[in-house]
Nucleic acid binder design. Structure first.
Lengths: 212, 212
DNA sequence: CTGAAAGCTGACCATACGGTCAGGATGCAA
DNA sequence: TTGCATCCTGACCGTATGGTCAGCTTTCAG
């Protein structure tokens, strides 16, 4: 019916194909892990012949690396919430919201990231030792300041960060478990809202930073 | 030097070999995932020829299933803490302690379990729909009672359980990240104690169940 | 219009992996 | 001691996978 249209420019072709491949790869890596994923499966999901994948990404490792780096970018962007905040209530609330939104919108990416870390971060070790460490140290300093200013109880900033990561990431990585316990249905809008509110309430109350 | 000793009884041979294989398998599955693990690697780590693995475990799937089931047992045992408790402070404290001890002593098992769930629980789906669901429903009921009795704030019991699982499991699954951020060193006894205390403090305070 | 660069792909290859098996070694009950 | 069940294993096999490549088509600058 509709004229197929395909006078695509070179640039577009490259961009679209890479995008399709990365999306397919993210899903397959998330579902099967690096070792269990096959280039053939990724190719099928992306709607391309396998050899075409190797035209854009020379090796499976390279493709995987690209996927993981993409996630890491998204992950780091959620950090901005923290900086702009004037206190723990604003900052931590915004961060929880942002990370929960990632868990909801990019569950596959979250799983790939979790898998990568669980297996000892073979491709992201350098990032963890540089970017992630800097990011973490910066937020630890912010939290420390909040504590000094009496805006929250004196809890260990690092363990607090781990708790934030853990609780939010859990809804992506263990989403299948949660769904199963939810009667086999994925969480509704309301349930996601409740999850966010629960986390914010418990943690903010727990660190003595409840809004006036 | 020491006389090699090997008049081993049949029973012992079987038990020891199965144990060695399961231990090696747990480690390899944790490090490489199901797809990335190879029977050869597991055999080498267990100090046995590959063919011998297949004598005890017919297929890779069967071996994997055994590993996962073992973990699930340990995981469920930590549940007892909950039942004996008279209130949220006792119960949740004990549960956090137990789960953190699992994260510390069985990091590989925890990772295999996490991996299994992340990939959609292909071998444990039935367990999740029966045993896990029952366990969860039971604890939800206990928590609900505590709330009714005014022993803690009215938070959603399910999300509270997820938070407990997430925070404790995180120290195993993301142990590598935590170590990296800890200067490349694994957590010391003191740091593990601090982690436990932090989690207990924040969560118990967060749900309004702080001890008098 | 033309030539070269970019994009594409079926067919192919070497390897690694899960699994098999025939036959030897060993513990053990009778 | 004997017979048998259990335990063990080197050698082997079929398959699936990551990766290659020669040669095709398409885009597009000049």
């Amino acid at each position: 019916m509709t004229e197929p249209t395909r006078p695509m420019r070179r640039q577009d072709i490259r961009r679209e194909n890479e995008k399709a491949i990365l999306l397919a790869a993210e899903k397959v890596f998330a579902e099967a892990g690096f070792g269990g994923a096959t280039m053939q499966l990724i190719a099928d999901l992306a709607g391309l012949p396998k050899a075409n994948l190797h035209y854009y990404f020379a090796t499976k490792e390279e493709l995987y690396r690209s996927v993981v780096q993409n996630i890491f970018e998204i992950w780091l962007q959620a950090a901005n919430c923290f900086d702009a905040a004037r206190g723990p209530v604003d900052g931590i609330s915004a961060y929880i919201d942002a990370k929960m939104e990632i868990s909801r919108r990019h569950p596959d990416g979250s799983k790939v990231w979790a898998s990568e870390v669980m297996h000892g971060a073979p491709v992201l070790q350098d990032y963890m030792e540089s970017t992630l460490r800097e990011w973490t140290d910066g937020r630890v300093e912010i939290i420390r300041r909040w504590i000094e200013e009496g805006k929250m109880d004196p809890v260990d900033p690092r363990h607090l960060l781990y708790m934030l990561w853990a609780t939010t990431q859990h809804y992506a990585d263990f989403g299948h478990q949660i769904e199963t316990l939810n009667g086999g249905k994925s969480l509704s809008d309301r349930q996601w809202r409740e999850a966010k509110e629960h986390i914010k309430r418990v943690i903010l109350t727990g660190i003595g930073a409840q809004p006036a």
